[in-house]
């Protein structure tokens, strides 16, 4: 049972990583790519960690895996904001639908 749930969670996690990369390739500007990477990859990692945590040998080992998530989230949130601000400072204009 645990194996099944774990497999499911890991697959869902991998899907979100895939979606993040897909967004990076397909979205038109750095701001949109940021949305894709920041949100999809972090969710992917969350699912992977959860999938591995439920099959961990001890509670402490499971919590250790889960502890990684908030750290990476903190990093992603601050780095995303830093990238967006930098892009704005460089004068990169967001892509708009009307301009096509």
């Amino acid at each position: 049972m645990i194996e099944l749930v774990s497999t499911l969670l890991l697959s869902v996690g991998a899907f979100f990583y895939f979606a993040g990369t897909l967004g990076l390739l397909r979205f038109p500007d750095v701001y949109c790519r940021l949305h894709a990477l920041a949100k999809a990859d972090n969710l992917g990692l969350g699912f992977i960690l959860l999938g591995l945590a439920i099959q961990a040998e001890s509670l402490a080992a499971a919590l250790k895996l889960v502890l990684i998530w908030p750290l990476v989230l903190a990093a992603s949130a601050t780095v995303s904001y830093a990238i967006a601000r930098r892009a704005d400072t460089l004068g990169i204009k967001p892509w708009r639908r009307e301009e096509r």
């Binding site: 993040g20 397909r26 979205f27 894709a36 949100k39």
Partner: peptide, 17 residues
Amino acid sequence: GVQVALLALRGRRALHP
């Protein structure tokens, strides 16, 4: 995450940034 994943699957034409 779900929302942006769906947008990524649909590609550029789904965006209204």
